[in-house]
Structures are given as C-alpha cells and as structure tokens.
Amino acid sequence: MMDIQIQKKLDSPSGNMVLDVVFTIEEGQMVALFGESGAGKTSLLRILAGLLQPDKGRISVHEKIWFQSEPKVINLKPQERNVGFVFQDYALFPHMTVLENLQFAAGKRKNSNLQHLIELNELGDLKHKKPKNLSGGQQQRVALARALAQQPNILLLDEPLSALDDNIRRKLQKHLLEAHKEYKLTTILVSHNVEEIIKLSDWVIELHHGKIVEQGHPHQLFASKEINEDFKVTAEVLSIESSGNSFIAQLLVQNHVLKMSFSQKQGKSIQKGDRIVLASNDFKPNVYKK
C-alpha cells in the first residue's frame, strides 16, 4: 500500500501553484492520474520516483518510508526506490541495442528473465537494433520491457502512449495490462485519454491546478458528468449552408466527418468553426459489429 501526502510549490507556465495532494493506493492497483496539462500530474509522478523533492509531507510504500519532512528528513534516492519509469520520450539509451538496454536495466538481478520479457513485448526481431532504428510503438515496447527488467515494485508511466496512433495504442494497452497482471505491479499512469483510462485503470485521480478534485472508479467518475443526457458527443462545425427550409452542416466528430441537417432556428445559431454538443435524451441507435 502506498500512502502519499505531499506539498510542493511548482513553477508552472500559468504561474506559481502548489501541488497539495493526499491519497492512498492499494497494492496491485492500476491508477490513472487525469487532468489538463499543467495540473501537476508529471510532477507528482517525478516526486514518487524521487526525481523531485517535495517541500513537505510523507510518502510510505509497503510501510517503508520513502520521504518524510519531519521529524527527521528522510528522502530515499531514486536508486533506492526500485521504481520502473516509462518516460514520455522513452529515454532509451541510444548507444545500446534493445537487448543491451534491457540488460543494463536488469543489472545483476538474477531472475529478471529477459527472454520472457522479449517474447511478451514481441521484441524478438528487434533485439539487436539500436533505438534510432525503431518506430515509436516499438520504442515504447522496449521502454516498457526495460522498466520491467529491473523487477520494480512500482511502475510509473508518464503519458506513454500519447504519441502513438490508435491501432498501436490499443495493442500496447493490451501489453501493458498483461504485464501489470503478470508481474503483480502497482502501476500509476498519467493520461488525458478517457478511453485509455477506462480500459486500463481501476481507479482515477483527477487533478486540477495541483489539487485532487475527484477520485473514483473510472466508469463512475467519467459517467457522473453526463447524467443530464442519455447520449452526447462534441463536434466541430466544418461548414454550414442553408438549403431550402433547413441547414446542411458538415461536422467533425473525433476522426469522422458527418453531414447533418438542422432546422432554420438551429442553423442560424451556429457558425463555421463552432464547437457544438450533439445530445439526445431518447437515443435508440442501431448497433452492429465492425
């Protein structure tokens, strides 16, 4: 179990703010830190890893104190925390091959079983390649395998999938979930992708300007904001023109362009470039498999 209670003054692009959070994470959970950029998610992750020192507070993990500001200052170095960390830029060592990266992380640990990690992450064909010859998704898999090679107690991921396209992203989510279960890890993941959080995590902590504004199970947390309508999506208006008694608009919904007709009254109230919400309280869709 991780008990976290910390305060830290941060210089953010939007001025000074104080990261001030108290929360608990059960062993074996996958927890997502959610919130807009600049909310303090990455700083919180860096504090847990020991890369950033909090001003005040206490962090204890499995009853061992990692940090405390009083009565006596204790601050374990990053080297002493055995945390697996997947950086946003992956931080693969450019002069080492994939296998060497894993071996370096495993160090003298006997049971790291690199062969199994290589298979789990489908790295067999890549093991003698240098990172610069890998695609983004491949680099991400190496970064994950490398973080696991050191047999960490805790795995921290800083928006690991944000730079990847949807297909690779889904595949890597699967890898991540498998590894999390197999190695019985406690995983903390920074993400601003709701779909990803719902798929992966058992608990979400939402940060806003350095404070926790909400936490709970992802389904409840994300659903609670949408109780007024049965269904709604956000769309961007690409074009709108009048056609007889109605208006025809082209809308961008996620990656799809839809054509819809609007009544005179609705059509006059929206313009090209607007962001609008399409809502329906009596929504009965036809469902079919892709």
């Binding site: 890369l51 002493e80 931080a91």
Partner: peptide
C-alpha cells in the same frame, strides 16, 4: 543529452 537518460539510469539503481 536529454535529462531523462540520466534519470532513467538513476531509477535503475545506477550510481
């Protein structure tokens, strides 16, 4: 050099 390389190495327990 990206600071994350150094940090990654520290997190692996390297001096």
């Amino acid at each position: 050099i990206s600071p994350s390389l150094k940090e990654a190495s520290y997190l692996m327990g390297k001096s």
